[in-house]
């Protein structure tokens, strides 16, 4: 079993303290929901966990090890996939930068091969989000941090995306932290729900 642990984490933007003595733990067989007020620091925590913010105090570890260079086993998926893709790369390159999934996985996510030759701007939000999820499912990934990844999607696409993501995550034993303001959604897909206020001072 793999364990993701955040111990005594403190972080602020300048003098503006956001995360105060945060402690959190999950394992790779869990799907955990993270809930909390707007502006309370959920996205900030996601960036801390995945190393996009690194000037924090405290420890983030997987099985007791801090991440030092190389592929990060904790991967972040954002609400807006277009913001983190190179607009001049074709979709095949966007995906291959991480890894190339086999055909059955591409089909599971409804990825049409004709899309490989297109640029990010030539796909809809739902289609792009499928790519960014698949990109994060590199076999070396142990945890996925999903920061409001389905709020911009229609309800039908939302179910499809979660169904595919959680099927693969369970199969590969990848833990998923789901950030959302939609309590009904969290109740549908999570084993447990954590309030940000309960894990900080």
């Amino acid at each position: 079993m793999d364990t993701l642990k955040a111990e005594n984490v403190n972080f602020g933007y300048g003098s503006h303290q956001i995360l105060k003595n945060l402690n959190f733990e999950m394992n790779n067989n869990q799907v955990i929901g993270l809930f909390g007020d707007s502006g309370s620091g959920k996205s900030t925590l996601c960036k801390v966990l995945t190393g996009f913010i690194n000037d924090y105090e405290g420890n983030i570890t997987v099985n007791g090890q801090k991440h030092k260079g190389g592929y990060n086993p904790i991967q972040l998926i954002y609400q807006h996939p277009e913001k983190v893709m190179n607009p001049r790369w074709k979709m095949k390159d966007v995906l291959e930068e991480s890894w190339m999934p086999d055909d059955s996985l591409l089909d599971e996510f409804g990825i049409k091969r004709e899309w490989f030759g297109r640029y990010p701007s030539e796909l809809s939000g739902g289609e792009l989000q499928r790519f960014s999820i698949l990109r994060s499912l590199n076999p070396k990934t142990k945890f996925i941090i999903a920061d409001e990844i389905s709020t911009m999607l229609d309800a039908v696409t939302q179910v499809q995306i979660w169904e595919s993501l959680l099927t693969v995550a369970r199969k590969n034993e990848v833990g998923v932290l789901v950030v959302s303001h939609d309590k009904n959604l969290l109740n549908r897909i999570c084993d447990d729900i954590v309030y940000l206020a309960d894990i900080t001072d």
């Binding site: 739902g126 229609d154 179910v159 009904n184």
Partner: peptide, 20 residues
């Protein structure tokens, strides 16, 4: 399908994507 896909109704899966 859209209505039945809501987390507060059935969270029901419908296969297939909008064509290009």
């Amino acid at each position: 399908s859209l209505y039945r896909a809501l987390p507060e109704t059935h969270f029901e899966l419908t296969e297939g994507h909008q064509p290009s």
